[in-house]
């Protein structure tokens, strides 16, 4: 559920969608693969907070947390469990 929502959000950006091909899996390193950049990450952070009603701490704003779809899902689930 989290992953689907994240994909839908990221792909709403035409530039991201253009770079998003069949090879992208839940484990693809999205930043290394050039699918998302630092600006897309900022938008993603706001989306995760608003959509899943979580608040990330500064120490969670690290590239690794947003590098793959699986990592993003893990972050959201962990934050939800902390509530």
């Amino acid at each position: 559920m989290v992953i689907e929502k994240v994909i839908a959000f990221l792909q709403s950006d035409p530039e991201v969608k253009e770079k998003w091909d069949d090879k992208v899996t839940h484990d693809t390193h999205l930043i290394d693969a050039g699918v998302i950049d630092s600006f897309a990450i900022i938008k993603l952070i706001m989306f995760l907070e608003e959509e899943f009603n979580i608040k990330l701490e500064s120490n969670e704003l690290v590239e690794n947390n947003f590098s793959t779809l699986k990592n993003i899902e893990k972050l959201v689930i962990e934050k939800n469990n902390q509530k």
Partner: peptide, 13 residues
């Protein structure tokens, strides 16, 4: 709207 909703909506206009 929420910030992310604006982001989402903008390319669809």
């Amino acid at each position: 709207l929420k910030f992310s909703e604006y982001i989402n909506k903008s390319p669809t206009l």
